[in-house]
C-alpha cells in the first residue's frame, strides 16, 4: 500500500530526513528486486537503486516525498536500468560468443547439478512448441518481449501470454525441485 508520510512531516517539520529514511526502508528491497528483474545482476541493481535515492534527495524540493516519491523512484530505477541494459547488450553478445567456444568447460563445471538440469531441460522440452520457443528466447538469449515478438512475427501480447503459460507449467512440473533449490541457495549464501 502506498504510505502517506504527511502526518509525520507535520508533527516534525524539520524531520525531512526521517521521512526520507522511512521512504527508503519501505521501498529499498522492492526497488532492488525490480532493478534485479531488469538487470539480472544484484550488484548493479544495488547501485542503481542507491543512485535513485540520491537523486530523490537532491530533488526533494520539487518531488514531494509524500505524493510522488515512490513513483519517482520506480520510474528512475526503470529508466537507469534500461539504459544500462542497452549498453550491456553489446558486451553480452561478445560474452555469449566466448561462452559458445568454451561450452564444454561450462557444462563440466555444472556436472554436479546434472540431475537437476536434466529435469529442468525435460520440463522445458515438454512445453508446447510455440511456448518453448518464446520461453527459451527470453530465458537463454535474454531477449526482451518486444524483440521476441519481432523475431517471431507475433504480437507482444502473445509473447506475454506464452511466457505466463510457460512459467505456470514449469512451476507445476518442477514443484518438488523448488524446495531443493531453496536449500541449495541457502547453503551457498
Amino acid at each position: 500500500m502506498q504510505k502517506l508520510y504527511t502526518l509525520n512531516k507535520l508533527i516534525n517539520p524539520s524531520g525531512e530526513k526521517d521521512v526520507y529514511k522511512q521512504c527508503f526502508q519501505d521501498n529499498f528491497e522492492r526497488l532492488h528486486r525490480y532493478a534485479f528483474t531488469l538487470l539480472q545482476d544484484n550488484e548493479e541493481a544495488r547501485d542503481v537503486v542507491q543512485q535513485a535515492f540520491v537523486k530523490l534527495w537532491q530533488k526533494r524540493e520539487e518531488v514531494s516525498l509524500e505524493v510522488a516519491g515512490r513513483a519517482y523512484l520506480y520510474t528512475t530505477v526503470q529508466r537507469d536500468c534500461l539504459n544500462i541494459f542497452r549498453n550491456k547488450k553489446v558486451k553480452r553478445s561478445y560474452a555469449n560468443a566466448v561462452l559458445a567456444t568454451h561450452k564444454e568447460d561450462y557444462v563440466e563445471e555444472r556436472a554436479e547439478n546434472r540431475e537437476i538440469n536434466n529435469r529442468i531441460h525435460a520440463a522445458i522440452d515438454a512445453l508446447p512448441p510455440r511456448c518453448r520457443e518464446v520461453f527459451c528466447k527470453s530465458r537463454f538469449e535474454e531477449k526482451k518481449y518486444a524483440e521476441i515478438a519481432e523475431e517471431l512475427n507475433i504480437s507482444v501480447k502473445t509473447v506475454e501470454v506464452q511466457m505466463g503459460k510457460a512459467l505456470k507449467i514449469m512451476r507445476e512440473q518442477l514443484a518438488d525441485l523448488i524446495t531443493i533449490t531453496v536449500i541449495i541457495i541457502a547453503y551457498f549464501k
Binding site: 541494459f85 518481449y145 506475454e160 501470454v161
Partner: peptide, 12 residues
C-alpha cells in the same frame, strides 16, 4: 500469472 511473469522477465 501473465503480469507476474512480465515482472520477473524485467518487462514491468
Amino acid at each position: 500469472i501473465t503480469m507476474l511473469t512480465r515482472y520477473l522477465a524485467g518487462e514491468a
